[in-house]
Design a protein around this nucleic acid. Structure first.
Length: 557
RNA sequence: UGGGGUAUGGGGUAAUUGGCAGCCCGACGGAUUCUGGCUCCGUUAGUCUAGGUUCGAGUCCUAGUACCCCAGCCA
């Protein structure tokens, strides 16, 4: 087990409880915008938001931040809920910022009445120019000082739909010279006639993120509003708005932590959407995508993702976690849970020349009981057919074995897993020198793989007469495109559709299909493979970084 | 350019708040093994820089440096 990473948020909440800051209450929320699918970065936020609530006996609600009708769709709401549940968290309620549009509107009028908000008739470019720049002063809008009655009248007419999109906005009246650009009279409402997926055409003015977020937290009774570092500059505004309003309860407090980034992939919604749109990947759930659906499809257990996020913890340092670290959690989990089956990716025929035949002259078929998972006896055993013609992995045989090659070679004895010891006698190649058949003799005294002699290797095998055909897709390019440690988010750009290599002619034991319920199986010695949803016969490598054969090559070299 | 943040081995992350720099990932070496897997043991290597305070500094002070965020009617 790993040492839990530092978690300043946990410490913060604990201190709050000791001091009764919120009366000992803890409530968080996970507030995604429903404009895309959740990815690995969200998994960390979810783990933090739900995890903190769970740990302190509080509540965490899912709240869809749906204040922008142009980009949001209900399709995404459904996927977000499903993905959170897949990760293993329960959402007591699915809330929406749009539930609070009426209250938000009322509070806007309240601010206008107190001279703290005004309607600005200028267009977007003008307002932007007047905001000034870093170290440059802002310019006050000519409409900044109009009276409350006029503001109220204009604002109501904005809501009534009297003005064109973009022609007017409601702004908070704060300070056009503030060092923090967020406080230079930020926009509260904009006119936008897009159709909202929940409120339909009821509204033509929509609150901005800043005007909606803190108030939504307050309405829901959130105590700890946890978000990522880039909202740090928004916190003074968050506090300013809440400070002006007659809130129903305690003021929530925003705390920021670093977002999760991974090497060799990107988590920008824009760029992920581009990959889907231009056909580089087959969709949001393509196993090469860092979306939760993609990872699930790839065979990453939710438990492993959660453990990884917990281990990463919360800090305020921007960093990029290595994909290897994530996958070490995936391997740890899979090693404990995945069913083991034998399969060969590059089959080569192996004939046992001294294998007996029955009365009719057919080769005898013998059955061996082999553990489904040697680490977990509860997973039981399965019966595997063995006969005189087998398939073994081509790489498990060497006509001229290099140093440190311990597997099959002429004159050498190895164990067939769970079956017999076997000694290679000779082999055949075709005209081009390609291996076509290996011949060997077995030792009947080593039944079940038990023998008096030590052998250096144990091979996996498949009975030729019983084998089923499978296909295996290799998606490794996604993660191997960039060199380890290279600080890049460009890996996906290097990927093209051709990087998906499908190996056909692979063979597996028939019991492979029994293991499909578990989604991920370990092909003995070949690593972890997940079933592809497109076909029960198509598998892809789950833990992509660990190309076992490459590792073997390295050890040999 | 103004403001706000962050700096600890190759990648991450701790250090009882001034007291032996620990852990995870990786790499390397070894042991074990009916998966060249798993497991176990070991090795490697670090406090951004320069000063200062102190018996003692990752921690405090001063001055630098690097990186991240902010000038959407996105969130």
């Amino acid at each position: 087990m790993t040492t839990p990473a530092g978690d300043f948020i946990r410490d913060l909440v604990r201190r709050d409880n000791e001091r009764q800051t919120f009366g000992g209450r803890v409530q968080t929320r996970f507030p995604p915008e429903p404009n895309g699918y959740l990815h690995i970065g969200h998994a960390k936020a979810i783990t933090v938001d739900f995890g903190i609530a769970e740990e302190f006996g509080g509540v965490c609600n899912l709240r869809l931040d749906d204040t922008n009708p142009d980009t949001e769709e209900s399709e995404f709401v459904d996927s977000i809920v499903a993905d959170i549940e897949w990760l293993g968290f329960r959402t007591p309620a699915v809330l929406h910022a749009s539930d609070y549009f009426d209250q938000l509107y009322e509070w806007a009028e309240y601010l206008i009445g107190r001279g703290l908000a005004y309607v600005d008739d200028q267009d977007s470019e003008t307002i932007s120019a007047q905001r000034g720049g870093y170290g440059r002063p802002g310019v006050e809008s000519p409409f900044r000082d109009r009276g409350a009655e006029e503001n109220l009248d204009l604002f109501r007419r904005m809501r009534a739909g009297e003005f064109a999109d973009g022609s007017r906005v409601l702004r908070a009246r704060i300070d056009m010279q503030h060092d923090n650009m967020q406080l230079r009279d930020p926009i509260m409402y904009r006119i936008r006639r897009g159709h909202h997926f929940r409120t339909g055409d009821k509204w033509c003015i929509y609150p901005t993120y800043d005007w909606a977020h803190g108030q939504s937290d307050a309405i829901e009774g959130v105590t700890h509003s946890l978000c990522t570092l880039e909202f740090e500059g928004n916190r003074p505004l968050y506090d300013w708005y809440l400070g002006q309003l007659p809130l129903p309860g305690d003021r929530p407090r925003q705390t920021e932590f670093a977002r999760l980034e991974l090497t060799h992939t990107v988590t920008s919604k824009r760029r992920l959407a581009k990959l889907v749109a231009d056909g580089t990947v087959d969709g949001w759930d393509d196993p090469r995508m860092p979306t939760l659906r993609g990872l699930r499809h790839r065979g990453y257990p939710a438990k492993a993702i959660r453990a990884f996020c917990t281990d990463v913890g919360t800090t305020r340092t921007n960093s990029r976690q290595s994909i290897e670290a994530l996958e070490s959690f995936v391997r740890r989990e899979l090693n404990a849970t995945a069913q083991r089956r034998m399969a060969v990716l590059h089959p080569v025929r192996l004939v046992v020349t001294n294998w007996p035949v029955d009365a009719v002259g057919d080769p005898v078929v013998e059955y061996f009981e082999i553990a489904n998972n040697p680490e977990n006896a509860e997973d039981g055993v399965r019966s595997v057919a063995f006969s005189g013609e087998l398939f073994i992995e081509a790489e498990d045989f060497a006509a001229d074995p290099p140093p440190k090659f311990f597997r099959l070679a002429p004159g050498r004895e190895v164990r067939l897993r769970g079956a017999y010891y076997l000694t290679c006698t000779d082999f055949d190649t075709d005209a081009d020198g390609n291996l076509v058949e290996v011949r060997a003799t077995y030792d009947p005294e080593t039944r079940g793989g038990q023998g008096p002699r030590k052998v250096k290797a144990t091979l996996h095998w498949v009975s030729a007469a019983h084998a089923i055909d499978i296909e295996v897709a290799l998606y490794d390019r996604l993660f191997s495109a960039a060199a380890p440690g290279e600080r890049t988010g460009e890996a996906l750009d290097d990927l093209n559709p051709n990087s998906r290599e499908v190996l056909t002619g692979c063979k597996a034991e028939p019991a492979l299909t029994d293991a499909l319920a578990g989604e991920v199986v370990q092909f003995e010695r070949l690593g972890y493979f997940a079933r592809d949803s497109s076909s029960p016969r198509l598998f892809h490598r789950t833990v992509g970084l660990r190309d076992e054969w490459a590792a073997i090559q390295r050890r040999q070299g």
